[in-house]
Simulated assay, not measured.
Amino acid sequence: MTEPGAGKTAQHITLALFLALTLPSALADTLRVGPHERLTRIAEAARLAKDGDTVEILPGEYRGDVAVWLQKRLTVRGIGQRPVLIADGSSAEGKAIWVIRNGEFHLENLEFRGSRVPAGNGAAIRFEGGRLTVRDCAFIDNQMGILTSNDGVSELVIEHSRFADAPHQMHSLPHLLYVGRIARVEIRHSRFENGFRGHLVKSRARQSLLHDNQIVDGSSGEASYEIDLPNGGIATITGNTVAQSAKTQNPVLISYGAEGDVWPDNALTLRHNVLISDVLPGGWFLRVHGDKFPTPPRLDIGDNETHGIGILTPAEATSR
């Protein structure tokens, strides 16, 4: 027999659950930024947006419009032709065009250009914590494309994006992408090209996943490593084209563990890639610094296509 009022209590619980699930999205706003909109500057939208909102940026150039984003959950996307954010000598907190403090952010269809700071590490985006997904974006002529924290827990996902044209500076090393000691980075279907002295992709993450990318410096590029994994970790590199220019600063395409380990597990999978070296008289397609680890990292290397003169880590190293 049903207790008096039990049905009504169940209805109240169901209603409360429904409201808890739907109310945040129902209260979310869309803020639109554009030359003829109420909001003409991205920085103003960053100040006004609430958790769960969406910020839409209309086509055009946004010069010196730098911002710090403090929301816990936000989507920021360009509408139509990709809007271009040009640093024009400005930076948020002396760090970047955008600083993302600590939240779950989704960025789509945006272009970042020309970030410079006196320290030499001016980023398009300084990602300081949380989870960041970047889709269909471009990072051109920045001292750093994206630069992350070393918090050990953050995650970064990059899809269908382009990183290119490192500035020709001598006082520091410009990396197209510099991932610090975060938990995980995944890079898919993206392009990295035309570096200078620094690396195209550098990751200190506990887990680094690179799938189906074009990491190709190009004939005018002068990058050092194409992929640098200085602290090892769990790295999976599959289905990529990785190519080094004859003008490289360092004749190694992929380097693993050059600075020693910081993670409890270290393993590298390198499969189904096309590896190209234009270096003469030759270099390394892959260099694993096994002597920098207390226990040699596990290696799974095979089915890679190589072009040019170079050394690939010996096959016997994969037997562990």
Score class of each variant (00 low, 15 high):
2 T>H: 14
5 G>S: 08
18 F>T: 13
18 F>Y: 12
24 P>S: 04
28 A>E: 01
31 L>D: 03
33 V>T: 02
33 V>N: 03
34 G>S: 05
35 P>K: 13
45 A>R: 01
47 R>L: 09
47 R>F: 10
47 R>P: 03
49 A>Y: 04
51 D>A: 06
53 D>G: 10
55 V>S: 00
56 E>K: 11
57 I>P: 11
58 L>Q: 11
58 L>S: 06
59 P>Y: 06
61 E>I: 07
62 Y>G: 07
71 Q>A: 10
72 K>Q: 14
72 K>C: 08
83 P>G: 01
83 P>H: 03
86 I>V: 15
86 I>F: 01
87 A>G: 09
89 G>R: 05
90 S>T: 13
91 S>V: 04
93 E>V: 08
93 E>F: 00
95 K>Y: 07
96 A>P: 11
97 I>N: 09
97 I>R: 10
100 I>G: 06
108 E>Q: 11
119 A>W: 06
121 N>R: 07
136 D>Y: 12
138 A>Y: 11
138 A>M: 14
144 M>T: 10
146 I>C: 09
158 I>V: 15
165 D>Y: 11
165 D>S: 10
167 P>W: 01
168 H>K: 15
179 V>G: 05
183 A>V: 02
186 E>L: 14
191 R>Y: 09
196 F>G: 00
200 L>I: 02
211 H>D: 11
214 Q>Y: 05
215 I>L: 12
215 I>Y: 05
215 I>M: 06
216 V>K: 00
219 S>C: 00
224 S>W: 00
227 I>M: 06
228 D>Y: 04
230 P>E: 00
237 I>N: 01
240 N>K: 01
244 Q>H: 10
247 K>N: 14
247 K>I: 07
251 P>D: 06
253 L>C: 04
253 L>K: 06
258 A>V: 12
259 E>W: 06
260 G>K: 06
265 D>S: 15
268 L>D: 02
269 T>Q: 08
271 R>S: 04
275 L>A: 02
278 D>S: 13
278 D>V: 02
280 L>I: 13
301 I>C: 05
302 G>H: 07
305 E>R: 14
309 I>Q: 07
312 L>S: 01
315 A>T: 12
320 R>D: 11
